[in-house]
């Protein structure tokens, strides 16, 4: 729209200095875009170029040897998914409950709603390493969970919460007000209105929130170092320490001489997982929207 409005204007002859400025701006803007795209391709290309050779079915299904220099990442994948599972199990109910509360029961001026919203803003700004400190002090020590998948997952849940709540709340607020009025005029209970009308219509927002949360949890490293720990054996319970994929990348590249090759492969797997989550969620969301919308 902006383009259609401004394009013919830009084509009108201007004074010489104006034309010069216009050209300079054009070069700067396109140059920036090219730079960003170039660096992106550089990162991705480097990961794929160096990582894809080490990647194999065996790499995904065998245990690491020699501190990760050889062998695969099977126990690490299991730990990563277990941490993610714990995180989601804690996040989803709390986030959906809070989001519904914020969107449906509080106004922007309400006091309790304001307290909750401010808390979430604070939580969203807390650096992940501080969450790591908190998780270590609270989950590992005070609750006695030790270095474990449970501690790590719960710490991640605290981090993901504000993201998921925000996005879910926005999804709910985007549901047209007419539905609520219509439902009230038909004397439907708020429970029915919520579960039959609002939540189904808000599914794209919910999915977006979940994807953000999963993305954050998968990508996180700093908060896990002192909560879920480094142990790269196959975990046998949620109370075992388990090494997440992101920590594996870190450890291989920083602490293990000659671990670069496998670090590339692990980083590629990590990025691949994130892309997969994004892609699947995008497809689901589109499908849902098509089902909901009028043909």
């Amino acid at each position: 729209m902006a383009d259609a409005l401004t394009a013919p204007v830009a084509a009108t002859p201007a004074r010489a200095d104006g034309a010069l400025r216009e050209t300079a701006a054009l070069v700067a803007v396109w140059g920036t875009a090219a730079l960003i795209a170039g660096v992106f391709l550089w990162i991705l290309g480097e990961l794929v170029w160096n990582g894809v050779g080490a990647l194999s079915w065996e790499y995904l299904t065998s245990a690491p040897r020699e501190a990760g220099r050889a062998g695969g990442i099977a126990p690490i994948l299991v730990s990563t998914l277990a941490i993610l599972g714990v995180c989601l199990a804690a996040t989803v109910p709390i986030a959906f409950g809070s989001a519904v509360f914020l969107a449906e029961y509080t106004s922007d001026a309400g006091r309790f709603g304001r307290v909750v919203r401010t808390s979430l803003d604070v939580l969203a700004g807390v650096p992940s390493i501080v969450f790591g400190l908190f998780g270590n002090a609270f989950f590992c020590r005070t609750l006695g969970l030790g270095f474990s998948i449970l501690s790590g997952g719960l710490t991640l849940a605290c981090m993901a919460l504000p993201l998921v709540i925000r996005s879910t709340e926005e999804g709910l607020r985007a549901v047209p007000r007419e539905y609520r009025m219509g439902a009230a005029a038909l004397a439907l209970s708020r429970t029915t209105t919520l579960f039959r009308l609002l939540l189904p219509a808000a599914v794209p927002g919910l999915t977006a929130g979940l994807v953000l949360g999963i993305g954050r949890a998968l990508a996180e490293t700093a908060a896990l170092i002192f909560t879920s720990g480094y142990v790269d054996r196959m975990p046998s319970s949620l109370l075992d320490s388990g090494r997440a994929l992101s920590i594996h990348v870190y450890d291989l590249s920083m602490n293990v001489a000659g671990g670069d090759r496998n670090a590339y492969a692990s980083a590629l797997v990590l990025v691949g997982l994130l892309l997969l989550v994004n892609g699947v969620a995008g497809a689901l969301s589109a499908l849902w929207r098509r089902r909901l919308a009028a043909p």
Binding site: I43, L47, A219, E220, T221, I247, Y250
Partner: peptide, 10 residues
């Protein structure tokens, strides 16, 4: 969405 550890590694 790229994890910070991947940026660091790169």
């Amino acid at each position: 969405g790229i994890p910070s550890v991947v940026y660091g590694f790169w």
